[in-house]
Design a protein around this nucleic acid. Structure first.
Lengths: 127, 127
DNA sequence: ACTTTTTGCTACTCATTTAGTAGCGATCTC
DNA sequence: GAGATCGCTACTAAATGAGTAGCAAAAAGT
């Protein structure tokens, strides 16, 4: 359940990409660097789904709406490079920092539940 | 400073796209719908930059690292369709819901500031 | 021990998204 | 009314993601 082939080496080459010029967040403001990282597909979904349990690659994939393995793997590398996710014997897991971030993100769940019906209403009105 | 050409009509046709099958978040869970919306480029950056003042299109563009006008405009339409952003006489503004969401998002700023140095350290180590 | 299944992940092709730049019509500035 | 600035659209090129197939390694079954 562990490959160890190149993935651990790639993570180093990927690191500079996180929060650097890649997706244009050299603004210097930490929040923008974070938004750059979290504002990629499935980033937050991954953190969310790792919050209550460690997950295998395929489990995670299933929970992220069958995200393609290429993106999922890239996201996981990025999140590991950022120190938010790490590998555990039983799959991927949140690091300490990852858990701390999740705690900050968590209230979004409640907010989303209040917001959802309003959104549906809006959508209904525009038919 | 206001065009009113097609943009207000397009917003209706864009609405169904928000949180629907588009970027694959038909999971039904509100949080995943929200993540789908926020997990697009500049979405959170826009909300963040509108939090302390209304901004013009070009001002917003400058603050979002010169995001291309096409994306910026798309994001703004999506956020308006989602009821988080609206147009004010002096530019774009957060709606009530948008402000509520920002309050939930706000702690990320502090967290990011604690996290930033750790990230730099990581990046330094992998050189 | 050997087959079968499952797992993590890479490789590839094709669709979608974003960047990057140019520019038009409307509005502000003087 | 000339110039600057504005919101925004159009277009092309590059980057990113989806979708599918499949392999090597590990797990599980017998």
């Amino acid at each position: 359940m562990s490959s160890k082939k190149s993935s651990d080496a790639d993570i180093a080459t990927l690191l500079p990409k996180v929060g650097k010029a890649v997706r244009g967040s050299q603004s210097g403001q930490p929040i923008m660097v974070l938004f750059d990282l979290l504002g990629r597909r499935w980033s937050m979904g991954i953190l969310w789904n790792l919050s209550d349990a460690n997950r295998t690659f395929r489990d995670l994939q299933a929970r992220c709406n069958s995200a393609s393995p290429t993106v999922l793997n890239t996201r996981l590398k990025e999140l590991r490079a950022a120190g938010l996710v790490e590998k555990a014997p039983d799959g991927y897991a949140l690091s300490n920092d990852g858990r701390a971030l999740f705690r900050v993100l968590e209230p979004l769940g409640d907010w989303a539940m209040e917001w959802a019906p309003k959104l549906s209403e809006r959508q209904a009105r525009s038919d």
